[in-house]
């Protein structure tokens, strides 16, 4: 069988950014089976933002989105002990602070603690910040 001719860079450049519906099947069929064209595509794509850089940037983004830094789960158990809270009727919460049901500790700083809470009066989630006890 005669090897199909390779595509030049301008064709490959259009192929790279063509939307899925407009992506020419003949070109796709060729490049998916042609090592030389794949290398050419990989060379072109690493001009500017590289695959590696893009992967690293998105990786850190998704991990940060999934788990905001300093969430309650990250904190050691002793830091979750909040002696100033009143026991709550709801066993799934850490306790109450005033009218607020405290759900978890969001973070601690030099000055105080921020907790995620539920306000039953306004019927919505809120954050409660208290000075370090």
């Amino acid at each position: 069988m005669i090897a199909p001719s390779h595509y030049d860079r301008s064709v490959l450049a259009r192929f790279l950014t063509a939307s899925e519906d407009n992506c020419p099947h003949d070109i796709a069929a060729h490049v998916e089976n042609c090592e030389e064209c794949q290398l050419a595509l990989e060379g072109m794509i690493n001009d500017g933002l590289t695959m590696k850089e893009a992967g690293r940037l998105l990786q850190q983004d998704s991990s940060a989105a999934a788990m905001p830094a300093g969430t309650g789960q990250d904190l050691p158990a002793e830091l979750q002990q909040l002696s100033f809270l009143e026991p709550s009727d709801d066993a799934s919460t850490l306790g109450t602070f005033g009218r607020y049901e405290i759900l978890r500790v969001l973070g601690r700083g030099g000055m105080g603690i921020v907790m995620q809470a539920f306000d039953p009066v306004l019927d919505r989630a809120c954050a409660v910040k208290v000075l370090a006890p």
């Binding site: 790279l16 950014t17 992506c23 998916e32 090592e35 595509l41 990989e42 933002l49 695959m51």
Partner: peptide, 15 residues
């Protein structure tokens, strides 16, 4: 080959 081509196309389109 299909994986290599697909990932290149995605990155190109992101850019």
């Amino acid at each position: 080959g299909a994986i290599r081509v697909a990932r290149c196309r995605v990155l190109a389109q992101l850019k």
